[in-house]
Design a protein around this nucleic acid. Sequence first.
DNA 1: AAAATTAGGTTAAGCGCTTACCCTTTCCCT
DNA 2: AGGGAAAGGGTAAGCGCTTAACCTAATTTT
Lengths: 344, 344
Amino acid sequence: MKPTIYDVAREAGVSIATVSKVLNNNGRISDKTREKVGRVMEELNYQPSLVASALTSRRTGTIGLMIPDIANPFFAETARGIEDYAQQQGSDLIVCSTDRDDEKAARYTSLLLRKRVDGLIIASHTGKTDMIRRLLADQVPLVLFSAEIRSLESSSVTVDDYKGGYQATEYLLSLGHRKLGIISDNLPGSKLRAEGFLDALRDAGVPFDNPANITHTSATLENGRRAAAAMLGQPEELRPTAIFACNDLLAIGVLKEARSAGLSIPRDLSVVGFDNTVLAEICHPTLTSIAQPLREMTEQAMILLNESIDNPDSPRRKIMLMPELVIRHSTGPVPGIKPEERLL
Amino acid sequence: MKPTIYDVAREAGVSIATVSKVLNNNGRISDKTREKVGRVMEELNYQPSLVASALTSRRTGTIGLMIPDIANPFFAETARGIEDYAQQQGSDLIVCSTDRDDEKAARYTSLLLRKRVDGLIIASHTGKTDMIRRLLADQVPLVLFSAEIRSLESSSVTVDDYKGGYQATEYLLSLGHRKLGIISDNLPGSKLRAEGFLDALRDAGVPFDNPANITHTSATLENGRRAAAAMLGQPEELRPTAIFACNDLLAIGVLKEARSAGLSIPRDLSVVGFDNTVLAEICHPTLTSIAQPLREMTEQAMILLNESIDNPDSPRRKIMLMPELVIRHSTGPVPGIKPEERLL
DNA sequence: AAAATTAGGTTAAGCGCTTACCCTTTCCCT
DNA sequence: AGGGAAAGGGTAAGCGCTTAACCTAATTTT
């Protein structure tokens, strides 16, 4: 049997309260006792049960992370950031892949609540607000990650998606592109990215009048390919010379399709992705992408979560961080364009 | 305050033992009582505390997963497989990224033990056996994943690394390649892969006498590049026409380096990777790779772990699964080779 | 009809900690 | 020297469950 606090107390000739105090380093304990108890702990290889301690102290030291899929690089990187931060404060992470399935999310949420996790970071909501609304009402410490819900008063950490879309588009315009395409997915953030795209065009006075050059789909490589195939299959005068994809996977699909259509990148087509995952470095040519400042985002998320854990009715805060354009080799100027025709 | 089992018992007019029994669906309870209690639980939105129940039942329903880095696609996919299986049985996963740092691993392990996880899946050991040996001695249910330790009597699930290396090499030989290179990393499994490589050459009677064509390094894209640069920089007669890299990341480094050296793949160079991660589909050309049967592996790992949890002194088992060659576009015949010169 | 089962609960003792509160000593001040 | 404060530690009541043991009434067996 694993030794308990009673065993330690007995061996050290003190009460369990004393042991508990040296364990948690509080209360008044003389150096001598502290040392003796410490020694006994070593001898017995005592591992205090955090489940017992959680029962009394109401802190489990574990936080739940809800994401669509841990096998998706963007979320794996997110998880890593949060894990590192949690680890620093002695907590750890239960990872829950929901596949954006509301029922699965509900099951997981319930499990996490029964496990009495200290808090939740949710990066997988589907837009259905009722479950989150209920959690909030129940005072469950929680922060929304990477996608917020405007109608809800919840803490959140996001990147400025609108700005990201705007930025990507501005950049493509500056390279001389005038016929642009956009492939968006069906997530909340992507809507904003698309808005940014459209507004950037409008602000530059570049018309966007070909409905075939905007596609909504879900984020897979194959869908990216298909969407690109449709756009690139148009007659030359309609076909875009640059495509903004709302995430890296879609963008890489575009890259692949372009190549098999015999186009050279970036000469014949420029492509910008979003998220700046490892994939952007892996593919060929390497992908220009809008980076989410993941490390800062995860750090902020943990800060907000901690606030909320320490004081359940501390004010909720929404934090929005700036995206950053990372230029690689999938983008280039429109061939033959004269410098003065470039924007900016 | 969250309702407890006492609240439910009081409202339902029964004892807490009864509530516990309907909760766990054991003991003898009439349908009427069961229903009434169930109704009260709903009304109160009762969420039984699994931490309290863990304290008595000695089952936390959580398992610890130790991996080098959750942001590494191979381990993220592993985690997903284990998570899915765990979820089916109502458990969940604490993910620990150790960076293959023994001290970090020790800290995490201790945390997991104090949290009284039901068992450990370890995919991150560094070859230092003492910590694992101690865990085993302490009867901690555990299974080694993806790399075993021959000297230890521990359950494990691995792919046949030797066979994988052999298979990759056989395939390259069958394409007519005779000057091969290998880039290995410093992990236990990779040694076996390299052995398989060398034995395949020996068995085919193909000499491997150029020490410059074997490199050991750690698994990063950049290291793959560097290693490839060294090999490809040799005079034509020494330079390999095919390279086997012991994991996908290294292989992709090779792809990149080859391209910037102006080589065309697979015409001028064939490349085989290992692990068959998503990256193999992302890169260009897509990567021929030795696949680990991840889904079966994670399933087996969970089966072994469960056995060990249910009966701590059930016999340990080592399971080795077969790798599979997945042919994509990074490999091809040596140019100009006649069919009869090919090995089969 | 008496004895033996069975169904359906209840009682109470933990599980291994934390913590408010209390009790001695010892020390310091005046 | 006497009194108060501080230092060091102990007591005991939970935290919210599970489960062995037990009890009573109803049902079955012979």
